[in-house]
Structure formats: C-alpha cells, structure tokens
Amino acid sequence: MDPARFDIVTLPIVEIELSRLSSVRSPRTSGEDPEHIETLLSVEGELPPILVHRPTMQVLDGLHRLKVARIRGDTKIVARFVDGSESDAFVLAVEANVRHGLPLSLADRKRAAVQIIGTHPQWSDRRVATATGISAGTVAELRRIGGDGGNEARIGRDGRIRPVDGSEGRRLAAEIIRSDPGLSLRQVAKQVGISPETVRDVRGRLERGESPTPDGSRHLRAESHPLRWREPDFGRALDRDRLAVLERLKADPALRLTEAGRILLRMLAMHSIDGQEWERILHGVPPYLCSVVAGFARDHAQVWTEFADRLENRVTDMAAG
C-alpha cells in the first residue's frame, strides 16, 4: 500500500464492534478535545465512518467519533478498513487528521514527521511535509537533528527517485537556460535528468540574480544571466512588471472576450495582491485552521504548477508540429 496514492473514499463501509478497536498508537498525543466531542454530539444523524487498520484494529482516524459512540451507548460504529504495514497505516492516520476534522497540533505533526522519517527514510522532505502538514524546511531540520541525512536518493511526492544532492543538475540546468532561455521546463529537465519543478526553481533563481543552488551565493553578476526579474518578496508590494503584464493580458481580446479567458483573468487578478494584503490574510486565518488552509494552498500551488507545465508543453508541441 502506497499512502501517497491511496484513496480512502473508495473503501467499503462496514460496522465494527467498539470493543474490538484500539487507539493506543494515535498521532494525536494531546488526547481528546472536549469541545470537539460536544460539537459532534450535537450533530444529527450518523457521523462519517472512522478509519481502521484491519491487521491491528487500530483507529487511524476518528477517535472523537469513537468517543461519541461510546457516550451515546452504541455498541457498533461504521468504519472503513485499510490493510498494509503499520508504518504506512500511521502515515494514513496523520494525513487524515491533518486534512479534515480537528487538525493535529503543530507538536503532534512534528512528532509524526520524525516517526515517518524513521519508517520511510527514502521519502523526500516535501513528501513527508505533504503527509504531516508542515513545511519541507521544517522536515529537513527535523531530519538533520535526527542525524538522518545519509541517503543518496529519496522518493518524491510523484513517486520518482531523485538524488538528495542535486547541485550538479541545477548547475547544468542553469547553463542550458542561459544558452537557450526559450526552452520549456520539461525540455531542460529531460536534458539534465531532473524534475521540471527543479528547473522552475533554477530559472526563478537566475531571474532574481541568485545562484542556481540553494546553498550558493545569493547574487550573481548581472552579465552571467540573461533573465532578469525583480526579486519577489512576501512582505513587499507586488512587482510592478508583473502588474503591467497582467494589465496587458486584461486588454487582450482573446482573453477578455471569451468565457475561459475571463475566468483565467479573474484567477490571475485574485492572486495578484501585494505583500501587505497577503500578510493580512495570513494573520486572519485562525490557528486551528492553519494546517487545513496550508494543505489547500499546497494543493492549489501544485495545480498551478501542472497548469504551467501543460501550457509550456502546448507551446513546444505547436512549435514541433
């Protein structure tokens, strides 16, 4: 069972006797939340099924629903069974508790990340971050503190194996981008043997005058790269050049006069807000929803990345045809 490619909602729903269930290995170390239990008790009708690891009968997701069933005097509860190893089942438990219901606390998510690093050392920092709802940087720091940095390659969120030290690939990608800026992300990625997302990061670093590798010097000589874009900063106003591009797009009849074009323009405008507005939105998210919103943000970022890749592929295919 690969937790990253597992769809829980496809599992059949069954009834299980409460006496058969265990909750000793829950990622929620802080215990049950009385207010959340009260909220669930006030819900009319049947609550969603819990998630149970069949080999151990461990409750992976639904401890509060289990508590409500016991308070109500129920002897059975609806559930979905999953099989597989206990380590993979723990990952599913963390993912389920991060993405809906009452989110795991930051401390619980960090503890979960440490455990997943131990059981899945081949996973990339981003893949562990996606499962636990914390940043890839935090995962990297937890991995460093734990002394787990010896793997030469790790498995990413897309299931592909990539080397931990990608500095050489980044340098090669930078050379190709400088020599031919018109190449698409996938074209550069194919030549070098790295992911399109890594190429995107390298291109962005060159545009900002930075080294293609994260640990390199921050700024390069201006003549060393032909691509130049003002460095973005979350705390600053939006780049005027980008705003100017957006205004040109709004004036283009091919977008302005078609339904699909207008939808795209609205989406681009929605994200084209300045740093102060982003900060206001950031601080307006309640703490108990931070991990949920972060998950949505990462998912939407991935959608935009795939959208950009398909656009570039479309241009490449048209040029080749």
Rank of each mutant, 00 (worst) to 15 (best):
D88H: 10
K67N: 08
V59F: 10
V82L: 06
S105W: 08
K110L: 07
I71T: 05
K76M: 14
D74I: 11
R80K: 14
V98S: 03
L104P: 01
G101W: 12
V98Y: 04
Q58V: 05
R111C: 12
V98G: 05
E86L: 12
V94I: 06
T75D: 12
S87C: 09
A113H: 02
E95R: 14
K67I: 09
K110D: 14
V59A: 10
L104M: 07
A113E: 07
R99H: 08
K110S: 10
S105I: 08
G73D: 00
Q58P: 01
L102D: 01
R65F: 10
A89G: 04
F90P: 02
F81D: 02
D108M: 15
D74A: 13
F90D: 00
A107Q: 13
I77D: 00
R54H: 15
E86V: 10
A107C: 06
A69F: 07
V82H: 14
L92V: 06
T75M: 12
A107L: 14
I77A: 02
V59H: 07
H53G: 06
G62R: 00
G101I: 06
G73F: 15
E86W: 14
P55G: 05
Q115F: 10
V52N: 00
L106V: 06
H53T: 03
R111A: 12
H53S: 03
S85K: 04
K76D: 04
Q115T: 11
I71M: 12
A69P: 01
V114D: 00
G62M: 12
H64V: 05
I116M: 08
R70C: 11
F81L: 05
A113L: 09
V98F: 09
K76A: 11
D83F: 15
D61R: 04
A79E: 05
R54G: 10
V82C: 03
Q58S: 08
K67L: 09
V78G: 06
K110M: 15
Q58H: 07
R70D: 00
R72P: 01
R80G: 00
V98W: 06
Q115L: 09
Q58A: 13
I77F: 12
R99W: 05
P103M: 08
D83T: 08
M57T: 08
D61H: 14
K76T: 15
R65A: 04
L106E: 13
I116L: 09
A112W: 07
E95M: 14
L104I: 03
L106Q: 13
S87H: 10
Q115W: 13
P103C: 06
A79N: 05
D108C: 15
S105C: 04
V68Q: 03
Q115Y: 13
V68G: 01
A96D: 03
V98D: 07
T56G: 03
L66D: 01
V78Q: 10
G62S: 05
V52D: 01
D88E: 15
R54I: 14
V114Q: 04
A89Q: 05
R109M: 14
L60G: 00
D83I: 09
S105A: 14
E95D: 06
I77V: 15
V82Q: 05
